[in-house]
Design a protein around this nucleic acid. Structure first.
Lengths: 359, 359
DNA sequence: TGTTTGATTGTGTGCGCACACAAACATACG
DNA sequence: CGTATGTTTGTGTGCGCACACAATCAAACA
């Protein structure tokens, strides 16, 4: 039963330094109008003792709001980002007592100019912190330069941009997740049948870095352990199901021995629909992300595994980390790779139930 | 840009209910000396509006400590419970500003009397809340009766005891996890070779309910999808490696075709050691829990998959839930089945990194 | 020396809540 | 009816801090 020693208050520091609490407050917050002599006295005391401000009192007394901006890509297929946003809102709520206020802005991932524009808006807003999903390198780099100039702390969400060190990064390691996906796919492919990689066709470059990395990891696995196993790519124009189905029919007619496939984006349900329609129930399929459509397909067996990446948690952690940094200068590991979760029909309910565990 | 509506304070409730803040305070905390009429008035207002206490002000004003007791089984092989305890300590820390104090007590899972005794001690202590791992039904039931009599809220950790409704339960669904484990094991057993279940021999009854349930789920899967696949049980006296190895040698001599195996407890590393020693590197093995020894075996490939159950999170959630209930009467879903995580060599680092994400 | 100015320092208030205490009220009993 | 006893209700204080404002001081100038 450890009895914690009585906490040191600002008052105590003031007493020991022989100044008033107001002066201590000024020193602690780096506010102006403190004589070098007074500052020295306070600094001396601060070095001697281990002062930790009472966050609760601090929150209670704080008057100004905490303004955080999130800059996310605006995708039409919203499922995944909706989960991220839910986590962001949870984080906002968790810091509501500190008057945290999170504003979400969007850019078009296929149009760099909108990213540039949104970045400029953010700089004009001058929030206390920015959480954003990196776009193409040069645009991202330009934004970061401005952020650093204006001393606005920033966090990467979902995508990494290695040239600069952010306050933190939250996202999955795409390459490793692709590697793991390959392993699981091949577990279901004991006959070493040909493997099928489905891709969206003519997609913009922005945002597909993730998918490219996943595919790289996938290929690394295949090149290491299954050089003998044929791999076919199939580009699908997604937006037009009829055309997709025609292409698929053609492909399967040409390669009736293909038995397993994978998608490196959230669109696995589209393939699942095709498989159901054609009654191809012995084709094994792996996809990404727990979109409601994917979840349905997982439940009815047309998708075998989904790789999940805890989007809510990413959003939540980002906001939490930013708030704690701004409020208490608390820093943590800058790079956080999120767990790579394998979800099957059997374990799905437990993953779903834990999505919203903080209300 | 939604401007968050002005927060409702106790004062506001008092005004609307036509009583004083003191009375509202009494109702909110379930303190005595409130007339039914006043209580009704306050309850009415509380139902109308969505009051959320300012935890910061609450923490600041609180003078008394918050006493929570955890009653855990004392196992010699500590790995798993150490993780639970780490989560508990994290929870304690998170509520340190509320003067939360968690005391951990232990009982001998193979000796019911110690559970009984510990329960009596807890009742004498009269803490604000109890978090415990249920023991055998009759003893658990007796403890709960006393707890309810003394109005001490309680939470089940790890094990469920369905006869009573606790404030909450945190643990994995053992039966479903066994079912899932069977699926993964059979994925690695495409040749439909015999399956081996390793068990500890002559173990006490307490605490093995979990394992029995896992095995039941496992068998359910096998009976549903692989009735043709032979299953062998092998009881091992664990404490004596030499004897274990002899038994295993005998078994494998008799059944050279056995290619996959599973353990429903944390001892998979013991089997892994044997497999390494005998160079049986084409035997596939699944186990439970990320003990450091299991993790090592997973890394070196002698274990293929581990089923993890987030023990830290269980501990953390328990403390958090208890604190929030005592402090704010906040209730949540009583039953929380934790996610069933499949961890492989490839995804292990990301699971490990996230263990201690809250410092 | 008196006055002004600006830098420096100290004091006071309130954030929302928990809890002690005082006040008001109801009830029972002599 | 008065007093004692218990119950219910309202009021006041302080938790530690942020921040506005008042007070003080030093230097400069007329």
């Amino acid at each position: 039963m450890k009895t914690s020693q009585p906490k040191i208050r600002i008052k105590d520091i003031a007493l020991r330094a022989g100044v008033s609490v107001g002066t201590v407050d000024r020193v602690l917050h780096g506010r102006p109008n403190v004589s070098p002599k007074s500052k020295a006295k306070v600094d001396k005391v601060l070095k001697e003792i281990d002062y930790e401000p009472n966050r609760m009192a601090s929150a209670l007394a704080r008057t100004k709001a905490l303004r955080i901006v999130c800059l996310l890509p605006q995708y039409a297929l919203g499922g995944y980002w909706e989960d991220v946003i839910r986590g962001i809102r949870q984080g906002e709520k968790a810091f509501a007592d500190f008057r945290a206020n999170v504003e979400i802005k969007y850019y078009d991932p296929y149009n760099y100019y909108t990213f540039e524009l949104a970045g400029q808006e953010v700089l004009k807003d001058a929030p206390d912190g920015l959480i954003f999903v990196p776009s193409a390198a040069e645009y991202t780099s330009r934004l970061i330069d401005s952020l650093e100039e204006n001393e606005i702390p920033f966090i990467y969400l979902d995508g990494e941009y290695k040239a600069h060190t952010p306050l933190a990064f939250f996202g999955q390691h795409p390459q490793k997740s692709g590697f793991f996906a390959a392993k699981m796919l091949m577990l279901m492919n004991s006959g070493r049948a040909p493997v099928l990689i489905f891709r969206k066709k003519s997609e913009g470059i922005v945002g597909s870095y993730q998918q490219a990395q996943r595919e790289e990891g996938f290929n690394e696995y295949m090149n290491t352990y299954h050089t003998d196993c044929p791999i076919y790519d199939l580009d699908l124009p997604v937006k037009h199901p009829e055309e997709d189905h025609k292409l698929l029919d053609e492909f399967f007619a040409a390669h009736p021995d293909a038995k397993v496939g994978i998608l490196f984006n959230s669109n696995a349900f589209i393939l699942a629909d095709y498989l159901k329609k054609r009654n191809k129930d012995n084709f094994r399929l792996i996809g990404y992300d727990l979109l409601s459509q994917n979840v349905e397909a997982l439940e009815d067996g047309s998708i075998d595994f989904l790789i999940a990446q805890d989007p809510e948690r990413q959003g939540y952690m980002s906001v939490q980390t930013m708030c704690e940094y701004i409020l208490f200068r608390k820093e943590r590991e800058p790079i956080h790779y999120m767990p790579i979760h394998l979800v099957s029909k059997e374990t799905l309910p437990f993953h779903m139930a834990n999505k919203l565990i903080n209300e």
